[in-house]
């Protein structure tokens, strides 16, 4: 299953890669793979912008506009303004 084509904000600078392989280890969609001791992007459209690779890349080779992909949160922030958050209290007076 793939989401919309050519919409993903993932950017990868191959020149900064030191070949540690963290991005391959953390990506749940196999967007990265190692080739000749460097990470390579296989299919950008598979990226779901979770941000795990960017957070864990020590060499700042990866950037992605990560955030919640839930429509309700985004609609709320469109209408009310502010940062979209999926309130952890889907229902009830959750404390957080």
């Amino acid at each position: 299953m793939k989401y919309l084509a050519n919409t993903v904000s993932l950017a990868y600078d191959e020149n900064r890669c030191e070949g540690c392989g963290r991005c391959v280890e953390v990506c749940p969609h196999g967007v990265f793979e190692m080739e000749a001791r460097r990470a390579k992007v296989t299919d950008r459209d598979k990226c779901m912008e979770c941000g795990a690779c960017a957070l864990n890349c020590e060499f700042k080779a990866i950037t992605v506009n990560a955030g919640v992909g839930c429509a309700a949160a985004l609609i709320n922030s469109m209408i009310i303004g502010g940062e979209p958050t999926c309130g952890c209290g889907d229902s009830g007076p959750a404390c957080c």
């Binding site: 779901m48 919640v68 839930c70 429509a71 985004l74």
Partner: peptide, 20 residues
Amino acid sequence: ALQFTGATTYTGMSGVKKEL
């Protein structure tokens, strides 16, 4: 159906914003 993007394992924020 669009609400379900919040629960899938493969949809990202940029795409949902575009749809909205």
